[in-house]
Write a protein that binds this DNA or RNA. Structure first.
Ligand code: DCP
Ligand code: MG
Ligand code: MG
Length: 537
DNA sequence: ATCCTCCCCTAC
DNA sequence: TAAGGTAGGGGAGGAT
């Protein structure tokens, strides 16, 4: 059996380079956090000497237990919802089998693992994450794992779509820094009773549209972006165009399931450079029409047109969309409303290649029949909890008192639910926000035979985080390491080179002076890993 | 009260 | 074969 374990590191408390102070050099690490672990305490954290591989290696080698990664279980949960067309649980049956049940809430846990480290002094931080997995005794054959590629970390990120979208914001920040004035962000303060005009705009099936933008013959055929065209494969669909969605194909689905629904589905490869270029054209157009632009992702933004409006909002929106199409040969859809919530919901109705205006007097009607799960910020866990009480639509949610929502979901989420189901949203369109953390994690292809493998991987992850910190020009003081370990009794991962069903644990440590140094990260990460008392094998 | 650590949840 | 990342919001529970 194989085992896999993950870990990640994270550093918090970032500070902009330049100002940091080191107060006490002596005490570089504050043992405090590390010890929390508690029982364990063997002092790993304190003495560097002890940290040595010895302790680690012993532990790790000694036990045979296996640990695996967890993605699968939870994943299933995340997606189950929609129309039931694609049952992720089935796809990931592993997870379910596993046993033990967990606690309470129905499949709540997500399986995602992440590892990260972050630092920060003030506002920035960095994350580092690693994942480890023990490899099966003999099958060394895996072509794409930490066991066979010494530069696995570096290579992995070149091909990861989630890494691309996850780091896009930092690139955007650099590219458009001249246009971003760090102003007020999201604090909900909408006291100016003035009516606003908000536009939410999102490119249609972005990754597919960009790749086929010069291939009109494919526009009405089902097409999806994926690394693999193997009809038995577990590669994930990144984006599917609208003809493909008619077959029930969605992002995140395994390619074998997509092919089963639509055998003639055309698979096209990723083109990250083109996504970057089209996103720049998209944002270039937006900034031309509006000074208040909030980027949500590479293909999606909010515009506060209240003060940039010269014409009818719908005509302006039409113009912006035409201009985007002219510049990119890709279509965008937009929603227009008086607040960000309604504008975003309007976009959904508008897709594909359309636009939709929701006047505030129609908001109540529009929301009544809307599923709670469709509200932004409400995912599988919250919506399932409500559904178990027979509350599925916004109209039903309006009958639940604020107190009851607070009790079940906490203050903030309770307020959000209460407001959103009534179409209330006071957030304001902001431009940039200060970085709070920086991290890196890998939950695929991570396999270790011994502690050396794990250490090598961890070091590479530290290097990655160090570079990212330097790239952002920030440093951090709190380093967090997260590790995934295969859950007891979990079988092989369903997904090729996946992490499977894992348990995640994390440890963090705050140091006196902010850092972006590889050597420092490496040292702290090692201590944190050791404090977790995990066995590699 | 407020802060801190270790999670969980969400979205792209 | 295939590339399951990243970051912020938020809560529980303990320390201060
Ligand atoms: N699970 C996901 C979600 C998104 N993406 C990538 C591919 C998408 O093209 C891009 C933008 O995400 P969207 O949610 O905007 O999805 P699309 O643009 O593909 O479709 P839509 O027309 O619904 O916006 O992010 C991904 O790789 N995996
Ligand atoms: Mg889109
Ligand atoms: Mg989008």
């Amino acid at each position: 059996m194989k085992l896999s374990s993950f870990f990640s590191e994270k550093q918090n408390e970032i500070c902009h380079k330049g100002e940091q102070n080191n107060q006490n050099k002596d005490i570089e690490f504050q043992p405090s956090s590390a010890q929390e672990g508690s029982q364990y305490q063997s002092g790993d954290c304190e003495s560097e000497a002890s940290m040595d591989t010895l302790e680690l290696s012993k532990d790790s080698l000694s036990s045979d237990e296996q640990k695996a990664s967890a993605f699968e279980e939870r994943e299933s949960g995340d997606f189950t919802v929609d129309e039931g067309e694609y049952d992720y649980e089935t796809a990931c049956s592993e997870s379910r089998n596993d046993t033990d049940g967990n606690l309470g809430v129905p499949q709540s846990p997500n399986a995602k693992s992440r590892c990260s480290n972050l630092f920060s002094t003030r506002s920035t931080g960095s994350h580092l994450s690693l994942s480890l997995e023990k490899s099966a005794a003999k099958p060394s054959g895996r072509p794409h794992s930490t066991l066979t590629d010494p530069n696995f970390v570096e290579n992995y990120f070149k091909y990861s779509r989630l890494h691309f979208i996850g780091t896009w914001r930092n690139r955007y920040r650099k590219r458009f820094s001249n246009l971003l004035e760090a102003k007020g962000i999201k604090l909900s303060a909408d006291h100016s009773g003035k009516k606003k005009t908000i536009i939410h705009i999102d490119m249609d099936c972005f990754f597919v549209s960009v790749v086929i933008r010069n291939m009109p013959e494919l526009h009405d055929k089902p097409v999806a972006v994926c690394h693999s065209d193997n009809p038995k494969g577990t590669a994930e669909i990144s984006s599917a165009n609208y003809p493909a969605r008619n077959y029930g194909i969605k992002a995140g689905m395994f390619v074998r399931d997509a092919k089963a629904r639509c055998p003639h589905l055309m698979i096209v490869p990723y083109n990250f450079d083109a996504y970057e270029e089209v996103a720049d054209q998209f944002y270039g157009t937006l900034h031309k029409h509006c000074s208040k632009v909030q980027a949500l992702s590479c293909d999606e933004a909010f515009l506060d047109m209240t003060e940039c409006l010269h014409d009818n909002p719908e005509e302006v929106t039409q113009r912006i969309r035409s201009e985007i199409f002219h510049a990119t040969k890709c279509t965008a859809s937009a929603g227009i409303a008086e607040n960000m919530l309604l504008a975003r919901l309007a976009t959904r109705s508008a897709k594909p290649n359309g636009q939709c205006f929701i006047p505030s007097e129609k908001a109540d009607d529009y929301l009544s029949s809307l599923s709670i799960k469709a509200l932004p910020g409400i995912g599988h866990t919250v919506s399932s909890k409500l559904k178990s009480k027979e509350i599925e639509y916004c109209s039903q949610l309006r009958n639940v008192s604020k107190d009851a929502l607070h009790k079940d979901f906490g203050k903030k989420t309770g307020d959000l639910l209460w407001n959103y189901c009534r179409g209330i949203d006071h957030s304001i369109v902001g431009s940039v926000q200060e970085t709070k953390s920086v991290g890196a994690e890998i939950n695929w292809g991570v396999r270790f035979n011994d502690n050396k493998d794990a250490e090598h991987f961890l070091n590479n992850l530290c290097k990655e985080v160090s570079l990212r910190l330097q790239g952002c020009g920030v440093q951090g003081r709190t380093i967090t390491l997260k590790v995934k370990t295969r859950r007891e009794g979990a079988g092989e991962p369903i997904k090729y080179m996946g992490c499977g069903d894992c348990e995640t644990t994390s440890r963090s440590m705050t140091i006196a002076g902010a850092t972006d140094s590889f050597v420092t990260l490496q040292r702290i990460a090692k201590q944190l890993f050791s404090a977790l008392h995990l066995d590699v094998l």
